[in-house]
């Protein structure tokens, strides 16, 4: 058969176009009567104070760092998992060692208190 990536590329293209259709159709026939009250931000009836794109809590950043480490490591694990059946036991043990080093990182972060939501 043909290259499956051509199919996936076309799929992505149409997959983006299909959700646009109802929005465009709705924009054609829906009423448009904007007014300042209607367009104000809904925050349970209280008027908005300041800008809303505020800075985020630093805790998210730390979790993002831990995530980044683990996500990159799991990408390394995929080739190992695919070829696992063809590998000798020694290579499997090496992979296990790799995971254990990874877990040591998690234990380190845990002991350092990075995993606490404060």
């Amino acid at each position: 058969m043909q290259n499956p990536w051509i199919y996936v590329g076309l799929f992505l293209l149409i997959g983006i176009i299909i959700p646009i259709i109802p929005i465009a159709f709705s924009a054609l026939i829906a009423p448009k009567k904007p007014n300042p009250i209607k367009q104000s931000t809904y925050e349970c009836g209280i008027e908005t104070v300041g800008v809303s794109q505020v800075q985020l809590k630093a805790q998210y950043y730390i979790f993002a760092l831990v995530f980044l480490i683990f996500d990159v490591e799991t990408v390394f694990l995929f080739p190992w998992a695919v070829s696992l059946n063809a590998l000798p036991f020694f290579a499997v043990a090496e992979g296990v060692l790799f995971i254990l080093i990874l877990m040591a990182g998690l234990v380190f972060a845990w002991r350092k208190g990075m995993l606490e939501w404060v």
Partner: peptide, 21 residues
């Protein structure tokens, strides 16, 4: 479909409209 589509004040129009798609 026939509901009015309200964009709030101060919204980033492009990103706001791209998100549901």
């Amino acid at each position: 479909i026939i509901k009015e589509d309200i964009t709030p004040d101060g919204a980033d129009k492009l990103v706001y409209n791209m998100a549901p798609i």
